[in-house]
Write a protein that binds this DNA or RNA. Structure first.
Lengths: 194, 194
DNA sequence: CCTACCGATCGGTAGG
DNA sequence: CCTACCGATCGGTAGG
């Protein structure tokens, strides 16, 4: 049997937890609240998961893995620097739009991870941002980009995407496609030579 | 006697609370932790403050007021649209760099406000972003700016600044001035016609 | 998957 | 500003 997993109760618990961690934050979400949204008693949760912390770990490292897998894909594709950066921005916008709960929890609640997971996450994140910086650096050196500081451009790009939180909270008069294209253009135009 | 207030014990409590709310989040910060960092017993805090919630309110609405006051100042100054936007970006970068605890708590912990403060904050924030959108809209109409969607440009600008959180956590090899200029340029170049 | 329950900790109060 | 303490709620376990 290939990777075709069916959604287990554990998956349901994690999905509901992701939504609640996003809405109320990790510390403010109680296992009793979570149990109620799943439709069982709090004690019964522990037949499917080990602890509250384990749920947070699963949410965060699943999302982090998706980011890393996509990054590898971009690196292995033959594209000019500006296209690589565009592909990475679009990916993060997609995560924020389509995988909102999980991605938001990773970005906003990671500091509630316990050791050794906290250190692992911080290390992974540092590696990720350094790889992105290296791509920007390459573009600056080859003069495809304006002479920006790669570190600052990386911060600007990665944090911009967090603003899409407010689109989710809004009445959504703007389409996801418009949102994506406008944000990508703003950030890319800010890097390109003209 | 003019506005020259001396730093009271209440100010000290709020300052320490702001730092702890930023580090650990509002729900994960206990009044006992806070009392210890101030150097008194938990019960003694209540001679200076009414409740944990009140502290959060003070931190957030102080910062929000600063943002509104600065915005009024920018609106009343005769400057081209692009300079107004630049002044607003620089202000938010300064808040993130120099008033890190308070500003971070406002941006990241506002959803822990209780009613009616929560509604008040959300309303104030909506007004603020709509005023910023209106400035961008004006620039698009007058063709000073590229034909961006003001809503998306506003989200991109305001959320970019949040990335400076990672500069605070870093070894700070980049100076605040370089950080500010690079972020401003990235965001402004993305709006300007060339 | 439930009932019943544990020790720990929470925000906050009484009284001095 | 402290000691002593309150009821509520927390994450989690025992036992079936």
């Amino acid at each position: 049997m290939p990777n075709r997993r069916k959604a287990s109760k554990k998956d349901l618990i994690i999905q509901k937890a992701s939504s609640m961690f996003r809405e109320k934050g990790f510390p403010a979400t109680s296992m009793r609240d979570l149990a109620e949204s799943v439709g069982i008693e709090a004690a019964s949760l522990y037949n499917h998961i080990q602890s509250k912390s384990e749920i947070l770990q699963e949410i965060i490292f699943r999302s982090a893995n998706e980011c890393n897998v996509h990054f590898d894909h971009v690196v292995s594709s033959p594209m000019p620097v500006i296209r690589r950066i565009e592909a990475l921005i679009r990916f993060h916008v997609h995560m924020m739009l389509n995988r909102f709960d999980d991605y938001y929890v990773m970005v906003n609640e990671w500091h509630h991870l316990e050791e050794p997971y906290l250190t692992t996450f911080i290390t992974q994140r540092r590696t990720y941002v350094q790889r992105l910086e290296a791509i920007i650096q390459e573009g600056v050196r080859s003069k495809e980009l304006r002479p920006v500081m790669p570190y600052v451009a990386m911060l600007t790009i990665l944090s911009s995407v967090r603003g899409l939180e407010f689109w989710h909270r809004s009445n959504k008069r703007i389409s996801p496609a418009e949102l994506e294209d406008n944000m990508v253009n703003h950030l890319i135009y800010g890097l390109k030579k003209n």
